[in-house]
Design a protein around this nucleic acid. Structure first.
Lengths: 132, 132
DNA sequence: TACCTTATTGATATTGATTACTAATAGCTA
DNA sequence: TAGCTATTAGTAATCAATATCAATAAGGTA
């Protein structure tokens, strides 16, 4: 895999974003300063990074794929109203899930590699709006 | 909400399917015997059922939305290779997740309504293929 | 039973996200 | 520096899903 300026820009943008950007969000925040950058290049590289394990993917019902700089075991909280995503780092929780791998493998005969856990509800802002 | 022959056919088809069909799979299995049925009607009604809580949605990276006749709390095992989905009914597991709601709400200020847990790996068939 | 109102349907156009394609470009290696 | 080839830019194509709207049919009413 060759190093290119585009790969570098894209990875830096994801890291600088602060949340969990989509391909288009990465593209939008780069195209002003890099008008020749192609959306296809952004998709191609984000997918490559995700397939390599250098980025995570967060897939949510009704939304384009989001990308995550955190590649270790963790969970997410997702707002059903506005789509906001928060990372949840809780080793106790992850351990509880991992402890279940053997059970699940026993009941399904699957060979498991990971789990994907999302807590779904309303973020603080949307909770406030709904109750006001 | 009016009762229609289409709603009835669609719901029966999901229940008769055995796995977790997509909208197009429901449509394909109905259109021979019901050539006038429209794909839009299938989408429309499956979404209505899911929004009503009469069906569940299973959203997997890179796949069209699958629908689930089980609407109670449960988890899924998903094959990363072929997309097979299995339901996991394990009250102990669900309890462990639910016990975490208060913690997560404390750390995120989200107001949670549910969790979505998927175990990801290879199904028995794909495990066999990969190791042979 | 016939009628009326309006939710629902069928058919198709449209949207939105993502991937495929291909000639031009630019990393890397010698 | 030259040459090989992975990668890119630009755009067309694909795929899932939704929007649109005239025609239809549920189901209440007289």
């Amino acid at each position: 895999m060759r190093n290119t300026k585009q790969k570098d820009l894209i990875m830096k943008t994801v890291h600088g974003h602060g949340q969990h950007p989509t391909a288009d969000e990465v593209y939008q925040s780069l195209k002003l300063s890099n008008p020749k950058l192609s959306l296809a290049t952004v998709y191609r590289n984000l997918n490559q990074f995700a397939d390599n394990g250098e980025l995570g993917r967060v897939v949510i019902d009704g939304e384009p794929t989001h990308f995550d700089i955190h590649t270790g075991e963790h969970s997410h909280a997702v707002c059903e109203n506005c789509g906001k995503i928060m990372d949840i780092f809780d080793q106790g929780l992850q351990n509880r899930i991992s402890e279940y791998f053997a059970n699940i493998e026993g009941m399904t005969d699957f060979h498991l590699t990971r789990a994907d856990l999302k807590f779904i509800g309303l973020c603080p802002e949307c909770t406030a709006k709904k109750t006001s």
